[in-house]
Design a protein around this nucleic acid. Structure first.
Length: 597
RNA sequence: GCCUCAGUAGCUCAGCUGGAUAGAGCAACGGCCUUCUAAGCCGUAGGUCAUGGGUUCGAGUCCCGUCUGGGGUACCA
């Protein structure tokens, strides 16, 4: 039981005894005391004035006096304006840290057969280009939120919908047919997704050249864009694909397989994975069937040109296209089909889509459409909407090649981490293989922490020149503190110093130590809060605050050289618990902690 | 036009259901390595929380208006 809820009850009793009135819980406002005042918990007395009918100071004074005399938890108190600062007995904090060291799994809920099942969709790449920084944010958020949900006792199925068909795929296929000269990843040594992406860019370049020519010869821009020969060829290719033309399907399979091999490498580097992968080529027909069923049942309507629409004006939205006049499906159709297949495959209690905020409208509509089609889970879907990654030059545009490539940035991070480690003379005790592993851990933590520490809802700025740092509020700083603690614990063991099982509860604590303990005690709540808000950033900032607070204390005192055995024991336990909590917290972000660095 | 999200230090970001003198990091400047790892610690400087009203004991936080920016807005995904 945490101290806030204990004090809450005590304050309730105090008010009821002193003023003969019952207080609703929400009027008892306890918060942790600000650094500059003495105390551990602070009661805001303003809301209680109407019960005491006395001045803020007097009310606080009376309550403080009562709590001091009648509870075992309060050691001392002081009053500043309308704030009652309470000093909690040391033994409480010491017991807390003692227990924290022993509790399995930090007291988190275990996943059981009865646990709710959450399906998390993330990543969702197109198979016509490699992953870029925006995808990295998506992947890291999706993976991390899955871990956070698991820590809160949910069964999680991580899923990925691969957009493997459509006109954009045909564009890169066409470019390869025209200008590919039979190139393959093997023949060129280029990673598959990059090779395919190069042809997609090539298509766009040639296509724009054609459009420019047509415009020059007097055609209107829009007409030219819609009638360029290359685009028509791509459309023909799509029709051939839909007609299951063997040559086309074979090429499609081959090029997609190149891309999957490439993605696999990137996913592995990022440390993300999936339990179940869906392919749009398998789901879009189901979507079409569902839309046609909706048409039969009268929830949708058809226009004269045969296109199918949903009328959402009663939901204060617009008309929405579901099937084009030529009968082909759109993005929304595919998502309906995928949803149906998923709910057939799993008994999903909650569906979470990790997709950028540019699609807020899309998911608002999807929820309503699923509901209209009679899926009772439709309204319950959660769109985990995150902001874009912006570059100093503006928005990333993959067609124009204006992106930060995922593989490039990962590689560059490792290079910088290696260089910096060597400059600082770190990792010299490790062999080459171990050192390489460690560089990677550091590099990835820098990137992951950078992406995850920002509130997911907000757009974030990424400056390739200077953004990713290894000092200050960063992943490596947290890893560094962890590695130092591990070093202390190793030395303790080597010196035959044992980390004690029990602590002397009458020991006096330093303020900074109490701050650290309070932070640790709030870990389970923080993780729960992160799950509720779908925000790994809450965990990231928690870890940073904890490590920072610990570091400040840790720097001022020596642990192993401490003469007083009780104090030494306490500090060893505290250090070890901090290491455990930080490692666990960072684990929820998909960040591994190195034993040495 | 309409819908929607955002605006906090030079830069990148925190700020829990409204609470005390708005916090970190980077960059700048000044200290600290014969004491467990200096990827660290301590200090200085840097703010009209876009802006104008309102609600109340109390507003960065809630409500309304304005400005600026992002995103969306019927056959792109």
């Amino acid at each position: 039981m945490n101290i806030e809820s204990i004090l809450q009850e005590e304050v309730k009793k105090a008010v009821s005894n002193l003023y003969k009135q019952e207080v609703p819980d929400n009027l008892i406002q306890l918060q942790s005391t600000r650094k500059e005042f003495e105390g551990d918990a602070t009661l805001v007395v303003f809301p209680l004035l109407r019960m005491s009918k006395k001045s803020p100071e007097q009310t606080a004074e009376e309550l403080g006096e009562y709590l001091l005399k009648n509870t075992e938890y309060v050691n001392a108190y002081n009053v500043v304006k309308g704030f009652l600062n309470l000093v909690v007995v040391s033994s409480h904090w010491i017991k807390l840290i003692e227990d924290a060291g022993k509790t399995e799994n930090f007291g988190f809920k275990n996943i059981t057969d009865d646990s709710e099942l959450v399906m998390v969709e993330y990543s969702s790449p197109n198979t016509n280009k490699p992953l870029h920084l925006g995808h990295i944010r998506n992947n890291l958020l999706g993976f991390s939120i899955s871990e956070i949900l698991k820590a809160n006792g949910y069964k999680v199925v991580k899923t990925n919908i691969v957009n493997d068909r459509g006109i954009h795929i045909c564009k890169s296929m066409l470019a390869w047919q025209k200008w590919g000269e039979g190139k393959t990843p093997e023949s060129t040594g280029i990673k598959g997704d990059h090779l395919v992406g190069d042809f997609y860019v090539k298509f766009d370049k040639e296509y724009r050249a054609e459009v420019a020519k047509l415009v020059e010869s007097g055609m209107e821009q829009k007409v030219a864009e819609n009638n360029a020969p290359l685009l028509n060829e791509a459309r023909e290719l799509l029709l051939k694909w839909e007609a299951k033309d063997k040559e086309t399907v074979d090429l499609w399979k081959t090029m997609n397989s190149w891309v999957y091999e490439g993605f696999e490498v990137t996913y592995k580097e990022l440390g993300v994975d999936f339990d179940k992968i869906y392919y749009e080529s398998d789901t879009f027909l189901t979507g079409k069937d569902e839309v046609l069923r909706g048409l039969d049942e009268g929830v949708f309507y058809q226009k004269e040109d045969n296109s199918v629409w949903a009328d959402l004006t009663s939901d204060k939205l617009d008309q929405k296209l579901l099937l084009r006049s030529d009968g082909t499906s759109v993005y929304m159709t595919q998502d309906i089909g995928t949803a149906k297949l998923r709910f057939n495959d799993y008994s999903i209690d909650k569906m979470v889509y990790v997709v950028g905020n540019e699609q807020n409208y899309h998911f608002q509509v999807l929820a309503i459409l699923l509901d209209k089609l009679g899926f009772d889970w439709g309204k319950g879907l959660y769109h985990f909407s995150y902001g874009m990654v912006e570059l100093p030059s503006g928005k990333m545009k993959s067609r124009e090649g204006k992106v930060v490539d995922a593989d490039d940035i990962l590689k560059e991070m490792v290079d910088v981490a290696k260089q910096m480690s060597q400059e600082l003379g770190k990792l010299e005790s490790l062999n080459e293989e171990e050192a390489n592993e460690t560089y990677k851990k550091i590099a990835k933590s820098a990137l992951k922490y950078f992406m995850l520490k920002v509130d997911p809802k907000k757009n974030m700025m990424f400056n390739p020149e200077e953004s990713i740092d290894f000092n200050g509020n960063t992943g490596p700083f947290i890893q560094y503190t962890y590695a130092r603690i591990k070093s202390v614990l190793r030395k303790a063991e080597a010196d035959g110093i044992k980390v004690p099982e029990t602590l002397n509860t009458s020991m006096k604590l330093e303020d900074k130590e109490k701050v650290v303990i309070k932070r640790i005690a709030s870990f389970p709540q923080t993780v729960a809060e992160a799950a509720e808000n779908y925000s790994p950033a809450i965990i990231a900032n928690y870890c940073y605050e904890l490590v920072k607070e610990f570091n400040q204390f840790y720097h001022d005192y020596s642990i192993l050289k401490e003469e007083d055995g009780d104090v030494k024991g306490f500090r060893l336990v505290l250090s070890s618990v901090v290491a455990d909590v930080v490692s666990r917290g960072m684990g929820l972000l998909g960040i591994q902690m190195p034993e040495r660095m």
